[in-house]
């Protein structure tokens, strides 16, 4: 069977996923993802033209709650696990050059 995923696809998907891959890693992922997608081709055996999709096994309606004011997380708690913070904010590298 021909390859479904190429090194180029892996590069593209890694970029979308915000993952930086090393060159040798890339080849390995390409090979492994190919094996997995070849297996997944199995789904093509089925005729699903008249089947509705299922996103949740249990039928759920929109769930809403009453709009009542409640205390929320304090700034101190929210920043407790922040890798970097300053004056009550999360600090990150420059976003706009």
């Amino acid at each position: 069977m021909k390859n479904i995923i190429t090194d180029k696809d892996v590069e593209y998907v890694a970029k979308l996923s915000r993952l930086k891959l090393k060159e040798d890693e890339k080849h390995k992922f390409t090979e492994q993802l190919n094996n997995i997608f070849k297996y997944i081709e199995k789904l093509n055996e089925l005729d699903i033209s008249k089947v509705e999709p299922t996103s949740h096994a249990i039928a759920l309606q929109n769930v809403t709650r009453k709009d009542i004011f409640k205390p929320s997380v304090s700034i101190e708690d929210a920043l407790k696990n922040a890798p970097d913070k300053e004056q009550g904010y999360f600090r990150v590298p420059a976003i706009i050059e």
């Binding site: 996923s17 993952l19 930086k20 696990n81 922040a82 890798p83 999360f90 990150v92 590298p93 976003i95």
Partner: peptide, 24 residues
């Protein structure tokens, strides 16, 4: 950003660099 690991790499330029390195 909000919690968890962040790369300590000094060479990162922008925020996308930081995301990619952190996740790697």
């Amino acid at each position: 950003v909000n919690f968890g690991h962040r790369t300590r790499d000094k060479g990162i330029g922008n925020i996308v660099d930081m995301y990619e390195k952190t996740r790697d």
